[in-house]
Design a protein around this nucleic acid. Structure first.
Lengths: 198, 198
DNA sequence: CCATAAATATACCGATTGGTATATTAAATA
DNA sequence: TATTTAATATACCAATCGGTATATTTATGG
């Protein structure tokens, strides 16, 4: 059964996670939190140990949303190579989608936590490694299935994919121009065509 | 002649710019500033209008350092195509170098200022556009000189270069792993070899 | 060397910070 | 419905925030 506190915790995260994601840790105050939720400090501190705990829970909350969404999108095909195309396809809509979350959590919190909050930074690294692991697995399955050239280093490709996508997200957000994401996805698609596909 | 205040302003920026770059605007307090410089608020506010003014001056200071350094590196060749290789060559040492500045100012302040400080964000955009303009010009000169294929869209290439480099910087800093920068520079070099070079 | 101006230090302001102890209210159980 | 417990609100804390007015020191030009 779900207690009232669990519902409240969930409600707080829904409201607060985009704020932390947008503003960063230091720029988000507890009065921002209470104002946005309409709750008092009593309710916040009853459900979260402290500000840091709330920030970490917020990051995890946002990432879960994101990973769930991309996971669902990848169900649209069983073919590994098609799954790679589905990844770029997913990110073609990422600017609009991620705006609802307050931006890309990996980029925002990754930069924000660097040199600031080692616990948060640790969480970001875990997420990045997890994403790269999943892409690596897809490529390896593609090689086994004979869809992808066996000469491809799956992990290296996963890292490159991730690096290019993060760069595109940063540029699109900073310049407020979706061109960067669209063009980068075109480029990645061509890389898959020319270098991976058998 | 250089007044004492000008020397002090310069001194403050040297000390404070890396702090703002590392921590971001909100996470840098005036007591951080006075503590690091050994000066008092009187000296700080005598030389800078307010915290925002100091943050902007800090960003400009860091970027000037960076652009000067890369500009000097590009003097090592007159050939446009060689200048492109010199860009990747410069970024191969970027992790160590930029650490002294407190990180990549474009990445850090770009993310930090998004949804926070529109004046700072404006400055970041100007820097990005300026860098892209310079790369665009190099490519166009390469085309004119017959070193680079005329089919290349110079601006698009400049944007791609920038996007990939920023992604690599983000990944290298977040994962504390220079692999991402080195691998991305390899990739860009290959792109120049295969797609630009005649 | 003195008068003036420039530069920096000091002391203070109200507002806000994250956090807590306690009072109050809402929910669950018997 | 009475009692207990869970959940939230209130009121407060010392510390720190960015900023300013004024006092003091340092540099400069006559």
């Amino acid at each position: 059964m779900t207690t009232k506190a669990e519902l409240t915790s969930q409600y707080i995260l829904e409201i607060v996670a985009p704020i932390f994601n947008k503003n960063g840790y230091a720029a988000t105050s507890l009065s921002d939190v209470t104002k946005a939720t309409g709750l008092t400090k009593g309710a916040i501190y009853g459900n979260f140990k402290n500000k840091e705990d709330l920030a970490i829970a917020s990051f995890v909350f946002t990432v879960k949303n994101m990973l769930k969404r991309i996971g669902e999108h990848l169900l649209n095909s069983d073919s590994p190579i098609e799954k790679l195309y589905l990844i770029t396809d997913f990110y073609r809509n990422y600017y609009d989608y991620s705006k609802e979350l307050g931006g890309c959590p990996v980029l925002n919190i990754g930069v924000d936590a660097n040199n600031q909050n080692s616990l948060l930074l640790q969480k970001v690294r875990q997420v990045i490694e997890r994403i790269q692991d999943q892409v690596t697995t897809i490529v390896e399955e593609g090689i086994e299935a004979g869809e992808i050239s066996a000469e491809i280093n799956a992990l290296y490709f996963a890292r490159r994919l991730d690096t290019m996508i993060q760069g595109a997200i940063f540029m699109t957000y900073t310049m407020d121009d979706d061109f960067y994401i669209q063009d980068t996805m075109d480029l990645i698609d061509r890389m898959i065509d020319n270098e991976l596909k058998i």
